[in-house]
């Protein structure tokens, strides 16, 4: 049985079926991310304190440039198919894939940076904050044995850790803390506070979309490209549909970047 309207537009909608399908899917995606963005706004306006300057703008900017370039290469790959240049399509789609992997690599680095960043509440009421250098071999928080070393600083007031924008030249040094002095030790994971919870949720879901899109693009670049020989028009439509999804994912990042990194 032949699938109808894979190439020719359906008379009642005016477009081929896959395009209707992807737009319906993207409408549901708008609701998903829209709900999360609304959640972000409500959590933020209801919070007594909100962290500022916790994310490195340089990495966010780099990832914005990477995704912008990938949107261009996606469009160029589709345009190459439209004019019958399969070689160019292969090249531009490979570029998109590499850019997607670059985005994920930068994101993983950022996640790792948060993962090894600790805030330690000490018995004297001060706070040690910084990146983990090492834990002694006998370090055990429950047994209160050993030491932990951070590359960071000690502050008397926890609120100093919240707004980093005005603290331009923070002097960081190695700080070693005895386990017996630790009241609470927690890394900057999603459990640390509301900001990090929503940061990991939004960017994690977005990264999953990048990963999913990369798999589809990888398939169309590799084994899926066999369709070009027997049905080039249908293949071109597949590239357009994957490009629409990719543009949506890029568009989400255009909202995520200022909301999380700049405000």
């Amino acid at each position: 049985m032949e699938i109808p309207y894979t190439v020719q537009p359906r008379p009642d909608t005016g477009i081929y079926n896959a395009k209707v399908g992807i737009w319906l899917f993207l409408a549901s995606e708008v609701m998903l991310f829209g709900g999360l963005f609304s959640g972000y706004v409500l959590l933020r306006v209801g919070a007594d304190q909100w962290p500022h300057g916790w994310l490195d703008v340089r990495f966010g900017t780099l990832n914005t440039i990477i995704l912008a370039l990938s949107a261009i290469t996606t469009l160029l790959a589709w345009a190459a198919c439209k004019v019958g240049h399969f070689g160019k399509f292969k090249f531009f789609h490979a570029c998109t894939l590499l850019l997607a992997l670059s985005f994920l690599s930068v994101k993983m680095y950022e996640y790792h940076d948060k993962w090894i960043h600790y805030e330690i509440k000490l018995a004297d009421g001060t706070f040690a904050d910084g990146h983990l250098v090492e834990k002694s071999a006998d370090f055990d928080l429950a047994q209160k044995t050993g030491t932990v070393t951070l590359h960071g600083r000690i502050v008397k007031d926890e609120t100093l850790l919240y707004d980093l924008r005005s603290q331009k030249n923070i002097e960081l040094k190695e700080v070693t803390v005895n386990a017996s002095d630790i009241v609470k030790m927690e890394n900057y994971g999603p459990w640390h506070n509301t900001f990090l919870a929503i940061y990991f949720t939004l960017t994690g879901l977005h990264a999953l979309h990048i990963l999913g899109g990369s798999i589809v693009i990888g398939y169309l670049w590799g084994p899926g490209s066999k369709m070009w020989k027997k049905d080039p028009e249908r293949f071109t439509n597949r590239i357009e549909v994957s490009g629409l999804f990719w543009h949506f994912v890029d568009l989400v990042w255009i909202f995520l970047f200022p909301v999380l990194y700049l405000t």
Binding site: K19, L75, H247, I254
Partner: peptide
């Protein structure tokens, strides 16, 4: 189409 969506993307 992807062309129209790309135009929105470029504007944003």
């Amino acid at each position: 189409s992807l062309k129209a969506f790309h135009l929105i993307f470029v504007t944003l």
